[in-house]
Design a protein around this nucleic acid. Structure first.
Lengths: 238, 238
DNA sequence: TAGTGGTCTAGACCACGAG
DNA sequence: TCGTGGTCTAGACCACTAC
């Protein structure tokens, strides 16, 4: 953990211990330098982090102030996390049941969305995710064979596709463009999961991109709303 | 204009003049220091700006690279807009059919969510929103009478509640915490809207806050997914 | 005038990636 | 091993706010 991160923690601790509330002024940067024994650059790094999180705000010439607290800090759908992380955050134990890994011809849609080369096939991964044993989500991930270096893996040793791409192909997912919609289960899900035909699911269609903006994989995630409460934090202008 | 900003311009100019394209490597930070005659700190400031704009990306140990330019991101649910604006953005003509405006006793939930004073009542606004005549959404807005200065309006002269609060009470909505879930229509909706009992809706439960972080109103919005395609842009870490 | 955050410099060492 | 970006220090001056 960097000194900047540590300074961030210390400042948060200071706010809590001294019971600072909305619009209270923090110690000046010079004072924080003395208090925490680090350089001003490091203090400003910590303050920049807190400002990004909307925990504080600065006014030149006046000082640094605590932001209105009642804004919930809980992160919502706008933050891209692996489903494993999300299940843990909800206090459940994540589990996975593999359904299938198959090489397929891509649909026209997929060719466009994943920017596939002519003739390039895709590999489809199907999984059931569980939260403390309860059916939480049904996941269909579609990956170009090119990304997998032409090989169709017979096993994926990771809980999360993010870890899989990071560890085996050094690809870091950074961004996902998601369509979100209500949905009934597919016939396959009714058979596999023993859910009712008219049970409600939240369906996310997502294209995942790496740092360079290249599409890496497509996913169709059916979430069980009885397990998850989905949140979105929405800002004007942002 | 700061040196950092100027350096940003110079780097963009460099990219254009040397015709760098996606994934081409930029000169190293040390090289840019020499080229532009400023300190490394300033160069890093300029690069941070460009990285935020997603014009470039960095990989530690390797270098700094030009990003793929056409990463144009349609704004999604994470941006808070009035439904009127959203309908317009989809190319439809927004319309409103008023259902009712009624003063009510708040539920316990509502007392907590809207931080109501003891005994404070709420006013419930029910509307049908249409998009070029098609049923687009069913909206239930719940407002503390305190916000309305104790009066129950018999009409709302605005298309959007945001405009209503801005124009009549000088309250600017800045943020909403939303729960998002799939839903069937309520019995009221089935009667009013002539929709099928098992038609799918996307339901958003939202608390709207003003700039000061005070809750202003609660809304339950049932969206017709046949009219809207909902998007969320999701980032790692952000 | 004094105190605050904003910008900038010069220099150092560390962590990562590739040959 | 070398070059890259990541982190950190010490010190300087500027711009804005308040008194």
């Amino acid at each position: 953990m960097s000194l900047g991160r540590k300074a961030r923690e210390s400042i948060l601790k200071y706010i809590a211990e001294n019971k600072l509330s909305a619009n209270d002024m923090l110690p000046s940067e010079a004072a924080l330098v003395e208090m925490l024994g680090v350089s001003r650059h490091t203090i400003r790094e910590a303050l920049a982090l807190l400002e990004q999180e909307r925990a504080i705000y600065k006014i030149q010439g006046k000082g640094t102030f605590v932001n209105r607290p009642p804004i919930q800090i809980e992160s919502g759908l706008e933050k891209l996390e692996s489903i494993t992380e999300i299940i843990r955050k909800f206090g459940y134990i994540p589990g996975t049941k593999w359904v299938s890994i198959e090489e397929e011809e891509p649909t026209e849609d997929m060719v466009q969305r994943l920017n596939l080369s002519p003739g390039e096939k895709v590999v489809t991964f199907k999984r059931i995710r569980t939260a403390s044993g309860k059916m939480a989500a049904f996941l269909i991930d579609t990956v170009p064979v090119g990304i997998l270096k032409g090989k169709v893996p017979d096993k994926v040793p990771c809980e999360s596709m993010f870890d899989f791409f990071k560890q085996h192909f050094n690809i870091v997912i950074e961004y996902a463009a998601s369509d979100i919609m209500p949905s009934f289960p597919t016939r396959e899900m009714v058979d596999l999961l023993k859910v009712k035909k008219n049970q409600l699911f939240l369906l996310l269609h997502q294209i995942h991109y790496d740092k360079g903006g290249h599409p890496v994989f497509y996913s169709m995630d059916y979430f069980n709303p009885e397990v998850f409460r989905f949140k979105v934090n929405r800002w004007v202008q942002g």
